[in-house]
Design a protein around this nucleic acid. Structure first.
Length: 208
DNA sequence: AAAATGATCAAG
DNA sequence: TTGATCATTTTA
């Protein structure tokens, strides 16, 4: 598999969000390798986007990495319990990013199951199987991603990268983003993208 | 339907 | 310094 180069992430953020679908996250921790396929993303579009951490040009210790070069990891903690994985996109000083909302497990299944539920993959019940990586907080737990990965370079890090694998035909669905009802006129922007029909796309009662 | 749970941020 | 918020998940 070929690691995506910086030019990929330097594209328009909506383009990156769509193109990341079907790509593979390769995560190496300790001596474990975990591979998963991206099936759901959301775009966060800088100073004008009321849902983005960089809205109004807000620049803090937490989101500093968004202002830097594309292709770097932005990890933040949410609700005091979970982490969210993002890829910084676009140009320097254009604070935009793509949130990875769900992935499909490919290999390193036991590591993922252990990280999430503390047991091997073949011990998971059907509910656990479905819920292994179908949400932004869940996938971070499965892939052992926390704030220590913030600022990692997706193009050169030995710990995490995103690769182009076998290209199969995919059908992309679109919807408003999840969990940003406060964002007024931006809450309905169709900036969530997912692989239609994929089992690991996150499930939400409202509209998803 | 609602709790869990604490880093983060803007206000004071 | 502090109180409100939160790009979620789990349990009931």
């Amino acid at each position: 598999m070929k690691i995506l180069q910086r030019e990929f992430y330097m594209q328009d953020t909506l383009t990156v969000a769509k193109e990341l679908l079907g790509k593979y996250i390769v995560r190496k921790a300790d001596s474990c390798e975990i591979i998963s396929r991206i099936v759901e993303t959301e775009a966060y579009l800088g100073p004008e986007d009321k849902a983005a951490h960089s809205y109004k040009g807000r620049r803090t210790e937490r989101n500093e990495i968004m202002y830097g070069m594309a292709g770097y990891v932005y990890v933040f903690m949410i609700y005091g319990m979970y982490y969210c994985l993002n890829a910084v996109t676009s140009e320097v000083n254009k604070p935009e990013a793509v949130l990875v909302r769900a992935v499909e497990p490919v290999s390193g299944l036991d590591y993922m199951a252990l990280n999430r539920f503390g047991v091997e993959y073949n011990r998971l019940n059907s509910y656990q199987l479905k819920n292994l990586t179908n949400g932004p907080g869940k996938l971070c737990k499965a892939l052992d991603i926390d704030r220590s990965l913030n600022g990692a370079d997706l193009c050169s890090s030995s710990e995490i990268s995103i690769c182009r694998g076998i290209e199969s035909s995919i059908e992309i669905g679109t919807s408003p983003r999840i969990g940003i009802d406060y964002a007024e006129e931006y809450k309905d922007m169709p900036w969530r993208f997912f692989l239609k029909g994929n089992t690991y796309v996150s499930y939400y009662k409202k509209g998803g």
